[in-house]
């Protein structure tokens, strides 16, 4: 079976698995990293959103064979370490606004939010209503409003 090596939450990992298995399953079923959730496997719901080299992506849509040894995958579990803190400021804001209901979508929401803030900044602006409208992550519990509040607040703090 082919071996695949990449960096997961700051540590080098190697897995033995067929090339075409999507990364979400390698994370959840092989490596036991269960922060990224399954909601569709179609790149639609965004529940699995994690970061690849600092950008938001859906691991359900990336065959593990496409990862190179230098690729850095960050899941919700590894997010705090990217800022060297117990919690990322986005997670802190999530607590402050008590965003989660069932919580199933929230790891993906937070990972998307961090990327959205960064994306807006790269475009030379702070995140605004139009950016928030673009977030595709489903929250079937309907926490959208608090997500908007938390992102807006967090963006002012880091």
């Amino acid at each position: 079976m082919p071996e695949h090596t990449f960096i997961l939450n700051g540590e080098r990992v190697t897995v033995d698995i067929e090339d075409d298995v999507r990364l979400l399953w390698v994370l959840r079923d092989v490596l036991g990293v269960t922060g990224p959730k399954y909601g569709c496997g179609l790149g639609v719901c965004q529940a699995c959103t994690s970061h690849l080299n600092g950008r938001a992506f859906t691991p359900c849509c990336v065959p593990v064979g496409e990862l190179a040894p230098g690729d850095e995958v960050t899941t919700i579990e590894g997010l705090p370490a990217t800022v060297g803190a117990e919690l990322h400021p986005m997670q802190e804001a999530w607590l402050e606004f008590d965003v989660a209901q069932c919580g199933y979508c929230q790891p993906g929401q937070i990972m998307a939010a961090v990327a959205k803030v960064r994306q807006a900044r790269e475009a030379g602006r702070e995140i605004g209503e139009a950016d928030l409208d673009e977030i595709r992550n489903i929250c079937r519990c309907g926490t959208y409003h608090r997500i908007r509040e938390a992102i807006t607040a967090a963006a002012k703090r880091y």
Partner: peptide
Amino acid sequence: QSPTDGRTRAY
């Protein structure tokens, strides 16, 4: 089937 274009859609 799950898509395979996740890398290109990263943001």
